[in-house]
């Protein structure tokens, strides 16, 4: 454990050093990332210029939901870089061989070899947005709220990591340059609207198949004091843990498949 922590810090420091060597480049990356964050909310912004509420959700409530989804997503984005290139770089170009030749868990190497540092911007932006909304909505947070918040962010990040690990692992069986990560990644935005506007099927999908609602909507309802989803809110850690275990199983199977096909 201690060795892995040291390794993580070393990986992180190394990578940060590389990025900082190209300051202008990093600056452009941060600006692009912030632009993407703002544009991602553009649809809702434009919409609310024409309508006062979305179902019974006010602008600041929807904004809170958006802000909350950004924080775990930001952490996830920081470590998910290699998942995008996995099919191409690791499987098709064969770099996964190198991963298998080292005495460190494959996942550890895949997740921590590269960091999308600029995505820390999302964590920051999300936190600021939440702070503004907490104030505007007069939510009056106490100690427990902060603890729940930290826990929910952690669970959200774990859910994102798990979902995308499972999708990335598909590359072990199907040789494909882009895989199915990008289309599902774009579905993240669906968890940023009140779940109640969807019909049963989509609600079910966003809860139990691609559980993005557990990373954004259910935690948000708790903080917005919308009591009707309290039981699902308490399930968040369970869902996060279950999907993580599932992801580990799928990943291990994928690695085993790689070793037998050598694709």
């Amino acid at each position: 454990m201690k060795r892995h922590l040291r390794l993580f810090l070393l990986y992180f420091a190394q990578y940060a050093k590389v990025r900082m060597a190209y300051k202008a480049d990093f600056f452009i990356a941060v600006i692009s990332s912030m632009t993407a964050t703002v544009l991602g909310f553009g649809f809702v912004l434009v919409l609310f210029s024409k309508i006062p509420r979305l179902q019974d959700w006010s602008f600041y409530e929807v904004l809170f939901l958006y802000g909350f989804s950004l924080v775990p997503l930001g952490f996830f984005n920081v470590i998910s870089w290699n998942l995008y290139e996995f099919g191409d770089v690791y499987i098709i170009q064969g770099r996964f061989d190198r991963i298998l030749l080292r005495p460190v868990h494959t996942l550890f190497q895949i997740l921590f070899e590269k960091f999308r540092l600029e995505s820390l911007q999302e964590v920051l932006t999300g936190t600021v947005v939440i702070a503004v909304c907490v104030q505007r909505l007069r939510l009056a947070w106490h100690g427990a709220d902060y603890l729940w918040f930290a826990l929910m962010v952690a669970c959200g990040a774990v859910i994102y990591v798990s979902v995308f690990l499972i999708l990335t692992a598909v590359s072990f069986w199907f040789e494909d340059r882009v895989g199915i990560v990008p289309p599902v990644f774009n579905m993240l935005t669906f968890g940023r609207y009140p779940l109640t506007i969807y019909n049963v099927f989509i609600q079910f999908m966003l809860s139990w198949i691609i559980p993005f609602a557990f990373a954004s909507f259910y935690p948000t309802t708790h903080f917005l004091r919308r009591e009707s989803f309290e039981s699902l809110f308490h399930l968040v850690p369970v869902v996060a843990a279950s999907f993580f275990v599932l992801a580990l199983i799928v990943w291990e199977r994928g690695v085993r498949n790689y070793s037998s096909t050598g694709s």
Binding site: D97, L100, L101, R256, S259, S260, G262
Partner: peptide
């Protein structure tokens, strides 16, 4: 070589 190095089963 890949079998000897543990990459392939």
């Amino acid at each position: 070589i890949k079998m000897l190095t543990g990459i392939l089963v």
